[in-house]
Design a binder for these strands. Structure first.
Lengths: 227, 227
DNA sequence: TATATTTTGTGACTTCTTTCACAACAAATG
DNA sequence: CATTTGTTGTGAAAGAAGTCACAAAATATA
């Protein structure tokens, strides 16, 4: 039996990020202690869910006393290795790539895009905070900055090729904005972000909502009618 | 008992989008018929999953004959109301907003950002394919274009306020790029896209991978040793 | 036309996720 | 110091999602 550990981004992890964001906000508001139901309410989940998630990530509180926000936050920092900086490379300086290279929230969370790459020599001359290199210098930069994570923002046609090259040079994690399913070895984690799909999902549910509202109106109409 | 239909974007829906992308690619390659296992292989899932998903969305094939790609695609178009155009508004023309307003893939899928909005009067003068309006004209535009879906790309501090206003003017679906949990009534669907979290999730798993690879190396070392 | 072959569609089963419920514990109170 | 109060942490129960397995159907073959 071939054992393949597949790295799938779990919902519990995403919720931990959410909790962290809520906690930061609460802290800013002057709160310094929470109970599972305080946080649950803030994050829009159940208290049991909060406690189960915490339990999964080995986060402990004090019975009766709840959780100290500062303790929670530093525990989370530890879990996410937030103390040290993480160097990232970004491939593809088109419309989306440029925007991501300027996205200030990455830096705020110690995730630094140290270099960007593009095949288009015209883009190389672009004025940008972060240097834009030709793809030929990929290995050099990845080695120098010990980069393990990359963002792919190239056209779908070249995404697989780029991924292969990144992995060859030691990249272990990819956030992929190209709308293709990358084939990667099992010791590499890929997180696909498809902006069109995100928008289209919403449209799908909105259609349902509108339809059901229509139905409700019809029902109301019938209720009003006298037989 | 209060019945609240909560609209949560299901994985099966996301997979249908994935299947569609795979099918389009296969079609371009000249294929015109697939079996569940062909598509499964292409999409990186199991054949049973493909069939179950199809069954959920009422998509039928021919026993023995598999599925006609053209039929599948048009059935999917129907499910997603892709025949008609969808008008979208985009709020917040900062770094990310500008990039989204230029994101050509939305248009390719009949999702048209008909107008963008910002509070900064400087941005209003910005040259942009899509008009940039002041927030005061929100209602007018939403009504004129019968907009039901909005993209929020404003700073987190104003996201809730913007959401409230959008909903007041009849918006039923929101793609929210601000890192806050929006409080909305149950007949509105929100899809949160948090780019930082997406990147950080990958970093989290990469740390795990690196650690486990480290362990494997140590194991190998021990295996090589003679006691 | 009968038989063999192949693939769908779905009920049953399994596995993963979330919720429930309560023992264990810590703090507050008398 | 005993008792009450209130919250955590976690097994057990319920629910959701994914996989399996096979009958049913369509096609191919003899």
């Amino acid at each position: 039996m071939k054992e393949v550990t597949k790295y799938i981004i779990k919902n519990s992890l995403k919720r931990i990020f959410l909790y962290r964001a809520c906690l930061s906000r609460l802290k800013q508001m002057g709160v310094d202690k929470v109970f599972s139901y305080t946080l649950a309410n803030e994050a829009g989940v159940t208290p049991a869910q909060v406690r189960k998630d915490f339990s999964e990530f080995g986060i402990k509180g004090n019975k009766k006393g709840g959780y100290e926000i500062d303790e929670l936050l530093s525990k989370m920092e530890e879990i996410f290795h937030r103390s040290k900086d993480h160097n990232i490379v970004l491939i593809g300086m088109g419309n989306l790539g440029q925007s991501l290279s300027r996205y200030s929230k990455f830096v705020q969370r110690n995730m630094n895009i140290v270099a960007t790459f593009d095949v288009d020599p015209f883009k190389l001359k672009m004025r940008s905070e972060i240097p834009v290199y030709s793809m030929t210098r990929l290995k050099e930069i990845i080695d120098r900055f010990r980069v393990k994570v990359a963002i792919i923002a190239v056209p779908e046609i070249s995404a697989q090729e780029v991924a292969d090259e990144l992995i060859r040079h030691g990249i272990k994690g990819i956030v992929n904005f190209a709308p293709v399913l990358l084939k990667v070895p099992s010791e590499v984690v890929v997180n696909n972000v498809n902006l069109c799909d995100e928008l289209e999902s919403v449209i799908y549910y909105v259609q349902k909502i509108l339809k059901s509202e229509g139905l409700k109106n019809i029902e109301l109409l019938y209720k009003d009618m006298k037989y």
